[in-house]
Design a protein around this nucleic acid. Structure first.
Lengths: 338, 338
DNA sequence: TTGAAAGCGCTAACAA
DNA sequence: TTGTTAGCGCTTTCAA
């Protein structure tokens, strides 16, 4: 591997001068600069980033610890988000360090390890919890991070979030306009912040039409298709089942659709089912899924950019970005026929 | 941050001795070793891994450039594979550097950049192509890597692969045993190695029962649900459509199911549809999907372990691992009623 | 405009 | 058993 030293020997200048020439300092004569750059090019010089990092005391790396549940982790949402983060990071010259951990003790350890080892300059956080230990910790340690999502009672950090209340109100209005009044719901673990927001949106949206969410038709699922399937079956076993089921994410909605179909119902006619996220799958299921669209890939990019700017000490135009999601009406929701 | 120097000052020993004590060398007296380890513990010493890397000339990092197609990248297969790779890497003390690139020029650049910058010690490769430039290149550069999948005409590298021929034969036998003789197929881009393997398995499996794959019912899809949907529609528009459609991956199978349902068919009764991979979704669709199971998470771990052993210069028990996948019969396949 | 020297934190060959 | 010294490749002060 070619080093500065090699070049310096070749061109007969000091290592210092070579370094400065290559970094575009202007206290090097045009002439030597040209010569050095030419030599570097010709010799195929590539700076040793590890040496740079040691010297600069920065890793130019961001960490993303994906919260996974269960062994079979497979959430299309994350694939897309990850792609957004990864591509933005590489555009900005940063590395992306990825790990997956189930929420809880091991997860915190992973954060502390990455910080303690100074493996990364900052973190991407997703799937916020009401009282998020990750965020509290990072704030306490004054370690850079950026978040997709908000938390319960503080906002002294950078985040991007979707306006889940708004999104769910769209769903509520839509279902009510179709004549639904008995509406079930499959929400995620209430500890998850987006569960709270979306649920609040649904409730207030329905309340605006004087409709209540009935307790027995309000279930908690684990965000997977399986969870949606199981909870939908439970809901539909009610002697007087709802005519519409609102799932708080697409994966659960897909599970709910399967459950309804297993029960011999035609989704969109006998029962309406809606999701949230608009993962690519949503468009090509049968029936296609009425849901709330979020630009997942772009959000990943935005959060990543925020983080890197924070790390570089650059000013953020906006510390908090709240996106208005949009309702996508497809075939899984239809007129109430009962 | 605490450094070896800080400790050496504190305990009144040289930096070298401290380093050796902490690394468990046995040319340090038990006494001083104890003392130094105690001091390090107490002071909260964490080695600076960047300094270690510079000194060792290794990055302890592996690279995984995920081949993505289209902007909306969202393949459950990759989520799960990634989790397997990531967790194994962290167990073995390695970092995982992730990037996503569409196959082609930009992708090769990404590989070369990571190599040139010596950002990683090796690569994980997936979705092999018949004549895979990535692999040829890496071999030429003698850069470590491990692969999920094989390539056309050489095997002088470590890989894990599923026996796609075997898997598809299972599918063929299954469908034939259900009375299907007109069978359609949605294959991936034939450049992809697993397309070739699976297709070969299907063809030979059918040939064993004297059945041919009809040209007009053999389509190429892009591995997404959308692709499956589109191609299934095309296949079913044949004046004499097949009674079964074999999709070469689950995502396309799910799309095909939707297409059949849009056409008013009951999948499993009017037409049988099968997939390959057994992503978690497959179990909770309606109907649930008959497919071929692969232990995706474990495979990710195996490939990762292979790579790291290669990097560390350790002997591999097996350089080539071929897994026998297993047929999972669910509801999307049923007796031929025509 | 250039170079010498120090230092980032660590490991390792060699000497004592 | 311990310490001295050199060096990984780079940036950056400071002096010339």
């Amino acid at each position: 591997m070619i080093t500065l030293k090699d070049i310096s020997i070749k061109v007969g200048k000091s290592i210092t001068t070579v370094s400065r020439a290559l970094n575009g300092y202007d206290d090097v004569s045009q002439e030597t600069k040209k010569m050095i750059q030419g030599a570097a090019e010709e010799m195929g010089y590539r700076p040793n980033i590890i040496a740079q990092r040691l010297q600069k005391q920065k890793t130019d790396t961001i960490g993303f610890i994906i919260p996974t549940f269960g062994p079979r982790f497979s959430d299309p949402f994350f694939s897309e988000f990850l792609a957004g983060v990864g591509n933005m990071a590489s555009d900005l010259g940063f590395d992306l360090l990825v790990s997956t951990q189930p929420p809880g003790e091991k997860e915190y350890k992973a954060y502390h390890k990455m910080m303690g080892d100074r493996r990364v300059d900052g973190f991407i956080i997703v799937r916020t919890r009401r009282n998020d230990e990750r965020i509290n910790d990072l704030l306490k340690q004054d370690f850079p991070f950026a978040v997709f999502g908000r938390i319960e009672d503080r906002n002294d950090f950078s985040y991007v979030d979707e306006d889940g209340v708004y999104g769910m109100r769209q769903i509520a209005d839509h279902l009510v306009s179709l004549g639904h009044t008995r509406i079930g719901c499959i929400a995620p673990d209430p500890e998850l912040m987006f569960a709270a927001t979306r649920l609040e949106g649904l409730k207030s949206g329905l309340a605006a039409h004087d409709i209540q969410l009935n307790g027995s038709m309000h279930k908690v699922g684990d965000l997977t298709q399986k969870g949606g399937y199981l909870q939908a079956k439970a809901i539909m076993s009610d002697p007087n089942p709802p005519t519409a089921i609102v799932a708080c994410n697409d994966l659960m909605a897909l599970g709910a659709i399967s459950a309804a179909q297993d029960l011999g119902l035609e989704v969109g006619r006998d029962v309406s089912i809606t999701g949230f996220d608009d993962i690519p799958l949503a468009e090509y299921t049968h029936p296609s899924l009425t849901t709330v669209h979020q630009p997942i890939y772009q959000i990943g990019g935005m959060v990543c950019e925020m983080l890197i700017k924070t790390i570089l000490g650059q000013e953020l135009e906006q510390k908090h970005i709240l996106l208005k999601p949009s309702l996508i009406i497809r075939e899984s929701s239809g007129k109430n026929n009962r």
